[in-house]
Simulated scan of single mutants.
Amino acid sequence: MTDLLFYHLETRPLEKVLPTLLEKTLERGWRAVVEVGSRERVEALDAALWTYSDDSFLPHGVAMGGDADAAQPVILTDGRQNPNAASVRFFVDRATPRAEQGYDRLVYIFNGHDPDAVIEARGVWRALRETYSVTYWQQDAEGRWSKRA
């Protein structure tokens, strides 16, 4: 059964959390596609991934209008495509998971300070908990992840 991981942001922003999760994904030999809620946020995350660390490099590309370099290990998109045949799909900035095929893992990251995002996350949990093996991770005060469900 495909894993669906919920990550509830509380202390560290997406721009700090996403690079670490993507690095761990690549360390496992997986490719990733990151579905973002809007084109503007794709551009902002693209810039953040280039500059998140002075001593690290996260190779990635952007799919706008359906075009993307399929050789990239990470693709950012505001659409549903999977141009790099990724086995992991991230949903961020109000992009929400659906019943997806062909992925080993789905990762849903939502902002705990946005009441609408929390409501959406609860709805996604209810809608997909029978379809996937779901786990819920929440940040503690130091930004570390604790498994809550």
Rank of each mutant, 00 (worst) to 15 (best):
T77K: 09
V62R: 05
T25W: 08
L22M: 03
S53Q: 00
L58I: 06
Y52E: 00
P13F: 08
D67L: 15
E23V: 09
D55A: 03
G102S: 11
L18I: 04
E27K: 15
G79V: 08
A48H: 05
K16L: 13
V92N: 01
E43Y: 08
R31P: 03
E15I: 00
T51K: 09
P83H: 06
T96I: 14
D93L: 11
K16Q: 15
L49Q: 06
E15H: 09
R94A: 13
V34E: 09
L21I: 04
P83D: 11
A44T: 11
F57E: 03
R98W: 03
E27H: 15
T77S: 15
R94M: 10
G79Y: 02
V34Q: 09
V88A: 03
A70P: 14
W50C: 06
E10G: 14
D55E: 02
A63N: 14
W50I: 05
D78T: 02
S53E: 13
V17E: 10
E23T: 13
A47D: 06
L22T: 04
E43H: 12
F90Y: 07
G61Y: 03
R41E: 15
H60C: 01
A86Y: 13
S38A: 12
D69Y: 14
E100N: 09
D69L: 12
R39L: 14
E100D: 12
S56V: 08
T96S: 14
K16A: 15
G61A: 14
S87G: 14
D46A: 00
R39D: 10
M64Q: 07
F57R: 11
L26N: 07
R31N: 04
Y52S: 09
A47G: 06
